[in-house]
Design a protein around this nucleic acid. Structure first.
Lengths: 249, 249
DNA sequence: TTGCGAACTTTGTGATCACAACGTATCGTA
DNA sequence: TACGATACGTTGTGATCACAAAGTTCGCAA
């Protein structure tokens, strides 16, 4: 797997690629730490459903794969557990939360509620912002062009879908709700993976259809229609997974 | 401050207080770790608003106060940061999130939305459960009896208020939304502290009035009225803090 | 053959050490 | 006197070691 260059590695210093011309990026954010990279890596894998539900994660194993010490890994795992993406068993081991019927319903309800609220709040702001509307249109177009050939559980479709939704949610400007929705998406990782694997290829087009409907509703300033389209988009994946749940609960 | 007995302390083993009669508690949960205790301690302090907004927390300082090593403290702090209770500055230091006008509005909106949903979902379940109704009634009664003499920011009133609300929310049975609301309450810690300090003592009675209204609405099966009463209960503290916000934003 | 127990392995948790980055204070110089 | 640079202290982060508890496997006895 990918190797993360640790800070205190015996390897020579990476020389930091000093900005050739200007004042670097002058962004106030400091250089990301190793644990941030580990966290982002695991989070990305979870959000794409790259790790099977129910699988247990071992600190030393992950540390070995990523060529870091156990320290950043355990902190990253702790963060993911507290976000609900992973589950801490009484054995002190952590695993990807398994999908049950009750959890599926619960997740869908939470996402419809909160994402619907963010959409309704963002709607007038986006409608009044030509640049934001343009960005959304370009994202759906990219999604359209990508969908037919590579409609399966590819990382690109997942990323474009994520980008589209969060371009909307971010416009709501809620520092409180946005990270909550991000956490819900991480928890929904196994759902989107299953849904993508289950969908007959012809049906996949419906996803972008919902996106188009959302954009139309935003342009029309119709909050109810936008919320309905978003609900259909969310419910699509959940309905399919729910129908083919192999488990009992 | 309180001292937490660490697992590997040079002190003699605590002998574990073996259950005298039966099979221990036979609960499947393992003994809480040191970091859990540290986390619970900090979380409780935050939820009661015992730590001022904007104050920075230092790992070694807290470790010294609690008589533990830095290890459990940094993990507990990381958990609280990922829950949004604390804020990680680019300096790598963490502090209690300061209250701004925008954040206040944001928090209130999120709480009204999610707690209202949980209440609406729990309402028919509670109405059909005599024991649950009784528990709520007893909690409000305890709150009533406590309110007049010790209405200030005492830990007891905060705990009883917390118990009342989460007795309702827990009945909704949402494993996804419940931890989210818990996180929102931790984030609201400075608000309730400020509100309790600001309220004229005579006005404090209104809090229990909202609780009574919620119970009446539950008994009547009136979801709209229940949601309105809950919204009034939540909005009460926020309105007062908002009116006396010393900050600019 | 099956059930139970002991020894080993695995794995998470806590402690301690080392290091880098940031902030501050103090001293020197213009 | 004021400005700046350097040195020191503080603090977070990562690595490594030590330990306890849970899980696993192997062997022995009924």
């Amino acid at each position: 797997m990918t190797t993360i260059s640790a800070r205190q590695n015996p390897s020579p210093p990476p020389a930091e690629a000093a900005a050739p011309g200007g004042l670097d990026s002058l962004a106030p954010v400091s250089r990301p730490t190793v644990q941030d990279v580990v966290y982002a890596q695991l989070r990305g894998s979870l959000i794409q459903g790259a790790i099977d539900a129910g699988q247990t994660l071992k600190i030393r194993d992950l540390a070995g794969r990523l060529s870091v010490s156990t320290m950043p890994v355990r902190e990253a795992l702790a963060r993911l557990v507290s976000e609900g993406a992973l589950e801490a068993l009484p054995n002190r081991t952590v695993r990807v939360r398994p999908l049950t019927r009750a959890r599926l319903d619960d997740l869908e309800r939470a996402r419809r509620l909160i994402e619907g609220e963010l959409l309704a709040f963002a709607l007038p702001r986006i409608a009044a912002d030509a640049a934001a509307l343009d960005r959304l249109a370009r994202l759906t177009q990219a999604y359209d062009e990508l969908a037919p050939p590579a409609l399966d559980a590819s990382a690109e479709t997942a990323d474009l879908n994520h980008a589209f939704h969060f371009a909307i949610y971010g416009a709501a400007g809620s520092e409180v709700l946005l990270p909550i929705v991000e956490a819900l998406w991480v928890q929904s990782g196994p759902v989107v993976r299953l849904a993508a694997a289950l969908f007959p290829k012809a049906e996949q087009a419906r996803a972008t259809e919902h996106h188009h409907a959302i954009i139309r509703a935003i342009r029309a300033g119709d909050a109810a229609a936008a919320r309905a389209a978003l609900g259909a988009d969310i419910g699509r994946a959940f309905a399919l997974v729910r129908a083919s749940l192999p488990e009992d609960a």
